[in-house]
């Protein structure tokens, strides 16, 4: 879902559905102050941003507006940095079953990719399950710019270098 799209007037929705007698409610999340900046960089510039607390010597990825260890405010101008689009596989799994329990034709790969001191959870591509190793260097592959919507799936997947 695009993060910039919002319903701002409740009246634009119909509360009770007379047919089903349901009151459909869903959650529509704001990306937050940090999230808005982070995803705009991802969408517009294809960059991954982290934020660094010098006092704690930690670089958070994705970037945040505060350090959870010491509560220092991490300012975009001062403390945010482009951490590049490469990382290393910190851990991974090969998913063999669909969420309804059927066996997949090909297992799909999911990795925790370490970038600076943070982890991004994402899909892995361009590598067979038996070839994946912890510690392997990977790089983010982005969707073309006109398909990016300001979400985590603007990154298609990570691929071994």
């Amino acid at each position: 879902m695009a993060i910039l799209e919002r319903i701002t007037r409740n009246i634009d929705n119909r509360y009770w559905d007379p047919g089903t007698k349901a009151f459909p409610v869903k959650n529509r999340y704001t990306a937050g102050v940090a999230g808005q900046w982070f995803f705009e960089e991802l969408k517009e510039n294809g960059k991954i941003y982290g934020s660094r607390c010098e006092d704690c010597a930690v670089t958070y990825v994705p970037a945040r507006i505060y350090c959870e260890r010491c509560f220092k405010r991490l300012e975009k101008e001062k403390d945010w940095l482009d951490v590049g689009t490469e990382g290393e596989i910190h851990s991974f799994t090969a998913v063999h079953r669909t969420k309804t329990g059927e066996e997949k034709e090909e297992p799909s790969l999911v990795a925790a990719v370490k970038i600076a001191d943070g982890l991004l959870i994402h899909r892995l591509a361009g590598v067979k399950p038996e070839q994946v190793e912890i510690g392997m260097k990977v790089k983010a592959e982005f969707k073309p710019k006109d398909e990016r919507q300001g979400g985590i799936e603007d990154i298609k997947h990570f691929k071994p270098l």
């Binding site: 509360y15 409610v25 959650n27 529509r28 999340y29």
Partner: peptide, 13 residues
């Protein structure tokens, strides 16, 4: 409460 769309009342049901 604004995350609940269209209105948080729906969750009270």
């Amino acid at each position: 409460m604004s995350s609940a769309m269209p209105h948080a009342q729906g969750f009270f049901l």
